[in-house]
Amino acid sequence: MYSGPNADEIITDAIKNGNYFELLKEQQTTVLKVYSTTAYDIKIVDNYWYNENGELIKQTILINNKEKVIFDKFKEAESMLLELERDLVVAS
């Protein structure tokens, strides 16, 4: 299963590229937001959600107020379970 980059790697990369970032503590998660601007002044926000163990659980990107999910650990786990369930039905 995809584990993604850790927060330290993302922060280091943001600093190297001169991007602004912020860490927000929510109940049991930490959200790391990295703000960047590309050509033609397009604003991008990369959002990373980490659980209390520092594991990436969700990653999204926001461009021009449109959000795209890059990774969602719970959706990935759900699809793996559904695939396993389908395989069990086929096998029996």
Results as ranks from 00 to 15, higher is better:
Met1His: 10
Tyr2His: 04
Tyr2Gln: 06
Ser3Lys: 05
Ser3Phe: 05
Ser3Asp: 05
Ser3Asn: 07
Gly4Glu: 00
Pro5Ser: 11
Pro5Met: 06
Asn6Ser: 07
Asn6Ala: 04
Asn6Gln: 06
Asn6Met: 02
Ala7Tyr: 02
Asp8Ser: 12
Asp8Asn: 12
Glu9Lys: 09
Ile10Phe: 00
Ile11Arg: 00
Thr12Asp: 05
Asp13Cys: 02
Asp13Pro: 00
Asp13His: 04
Ala14Phe: 04
Ala14Ile: 04
Ile15Cys: 02
Lys16His: 11
Lys16Val: 09
Asn17Val: 03
Gly18His: 06
Gly18Lys: 05
Gly18Ile: 07
Asn19Cys: 12
Asn19Ala: 10
Asn19Asp: 14
Tyr20Glu: 15
Tyr20Cys: 06
Phe21Pro: 00
Glu22Ser: 13
Glu22Cys: 03
Leu23Asn: 13
Leu23Gly: 07
Leu23His: 06
Leu24Pro: 00
Leu24Phe: 05
Lys25Asn: 09
Lys25Trp: 01
Glu26Lys: 08
Glu26Gln: 09
Gln27Pro: 05
Gln27Leu: 11
Gln28Val: 03
Thr29Val: 14
Val31Gly: 07
Leu32Phe: 12
Leu32Gln: 10
Lys33Cys: 07
Lys33Ser: 13
Val34Tyr: 04
Tyr35Pro: 03
Ser36Asn: 09
Thr37Gly: 02
Thr38Tyr: 05
Thr38Lys: 07
Tyr40Trp: 01
Tyr40Ser: 00
Tyr40His: 01
Ile44Asp: 08
Ile44Leu: 12
Val45Asn: 07
Val45Glu: 15
Asp46Tyr: 11
Tyr48Gly: 00
Trp49Asp: 05
Asn51Gln: 02
Asn51Ser: 02
Asn51Asp: 15
Glu52Gln: 15
Asn53Phe: 03
Asn53His: 11
Asn53Pro: 00
Gly54Val: 04
Gly54Lys: 01
Glu55Phe: 07
Leu56Arg: 08
Ile57Asp: 06
Ile57Thr: 13
Ile57Pro: 09
Ile57His: 09
Gln59Phe: 03
Gln59Ile: 02
Gln59Asn: 10
Thr60Arg: 06
Thr60Trp: 05
Ile61Leu: 01
Leu62Asp: 10
Leu62Gly: 01
Leu62Arg: 06
Ile63Thr: 13
Ile63Asn: 01
Asn64Val: 09
Asn64Cys: 05
Asn64Pro: 04
Asn64Glu: 15
Asn65Arg: 14
Asn65Phe: 11
Lys66Phe: 08
Lys66Asn: 15
Lys66Cys: 08
Glu67Asn: 10
Lys68Phe: 12
Lys68Val: 13
Val69Ser: 08
Val69Cys: 13
Val69Thr: 15
Ile70His: 04
Ile70Thr: 10
Phe71Lys: 07
Asp72Phe: 04
Lys73Met: 09
Phe74Cys: 03
Phe74Pro: 04
Phe74Leu: 08
Lys75Asn: 14
Glu76Met: 08
Glu76Leu: 13
Glu78Pro: 02
Glu78Arg: 09
Ser79Cys: 05
Met80Gln: 13
Met80Gly: 05
Met80Asp: 15
Met80Ile: 12
Leu81Trp: 07
Leu81Gly: 11
Leu82Met: 10
Leu84Tyr: 14
Leu84Ala: 15
Leu84Thr: 14
Leu84Phe: 11
Leu84Arg: 13
Glu85Pro: 00
Glu85Leu: 06
Glu85Arg: 08
Arg86Pro: 00
Arg86Glu: 06
Asp87Phe: 06
Asp87Val: 05
Leu88Arg: 14
Leu88Gln: 14
Leu88Met: 12
Val89Met: 11
Val89Tyr: 15
Val90Asp: 12
Ala91Gln: 09
Ala91Thr: 07
Ala91Met: 08
Ala91Asp: 11
